[in-house]
């Protein structure tokens, strides 16, 4: 399995996109009248959350592919997508807390369905690794992890629906309200930021996939070398007697 093709080019594009997004966020997008400078965390927090959720759902889709084809590469992809989304999830909860503290005055707001749903989904995916690594057989591990990924992927939209129904809205619904709510320059900045953060996600996934497959190859080669050494030692022992 080779995952490393084009990694360098992708990394360069990602770095450029991130630089562009940061430039737009700090020098182009206007200061928001109500919240001021703090509002700029919106350009990080919301794309991070969207990409993390998409990563989890993608993990479920890769899980379906693994069960359908039995090809190990889908297992790698599913694992890495979920793992990266977990890391993004930590960033989402941190940036969300900071933003909540700055604009609503509390680190945590239970009345905010999106934040609460995200926490529940995050907690569910936190159990992915403990579950996965307590299964010894690698083939079975992949299959069970895929079943988890599919179930959890279906759970994500359901959970958002349940939590949203249960709580009144606090979050700004910037894109669903009547047009003109978010000025064009802010929307452009946000879209560039979304693309940059999605690219960063893909790059990090590719990097982890490359490193995992390299590690697997190394392990296989080392095992073969050990087997050869053992055979040689045995021959030497037999020869000496």
């Amino acid at each position: 399995m080779v995952f490393g093709n084009g990694l360098r080019a992708l990394a360069l594009v990602t770095a450029a996109a991130l630089a562009l997004a940061m430039g737009l966020i700090f020098f182009y997008a206007p200061l928001e009248a109500d919240q001021g400078f703090v509002q700029k965390i919106f350009y990080l927090h919301v794309p991070l959350a969207i990409v993390a959720l998409c990563g989890w759902v993608a993990g479920g889709i890769f899980g379906i592919q693994l069960l359908r084809t039995g090809d190990r590469k889908w297992d790698y992809r599913s694992y890495v997508a979920i793992h990266m989304s977990l890391i993004y999830g930590v960033a989402v909860l941190l940036t969300g807390s900071i933003w909540a503290k700055a604009s609503w005055g509390h680190w945590w707001v239970w009345g905010e369905p999106t934040l609460v749903s995200f926490l529940i989904v995050f907690l569910l995916y936190c159990t992915y690794q403990p579950m996965r690594f307590s299964i010894a057989d690698p083939e079975k591990q992949g299959r069970y992890a895929a079943v988890f990924a599919i179930t959890a992927g279906a759970f994500v939209p359901l959970n958002f629906m349940a939590v949203r129904l249960a709580t009144p809205l606090v979050h700004p619904r910037v894109f669903t309200r009547v047009a003109g709510d978010l000025p064009g320059s802010m929307r452009l900045t946000w879209l560039v930021s979304l693309v940059a953060i999605a690219l960063l996600f893909v790059t990090l996934c590719k990097l982890e996939l490359t490193s995992k497959s390299a590690k697997d190859n190394l392990r296989r080669l080392r095992r073969r070398l050990e087997a050869r050494d053992e055979a040689a030692a045995e021959r030497a022992f037999v020869g000496a007697n």
């Binding site: 159990t127 579950m131 307590s134 299964i135 069970y144």
Partner: peptide, 15 residues
């Protein structure tokens, strides 16, 4: 899901 894991007493409630 938990039946095949080594730590099912932990994994099942967490899941």
């Amino acid at each position: 899901l938990g039946a095949e894991t080594d730590a099912r007493e932990l994994v099942v409630p967490l899941l």
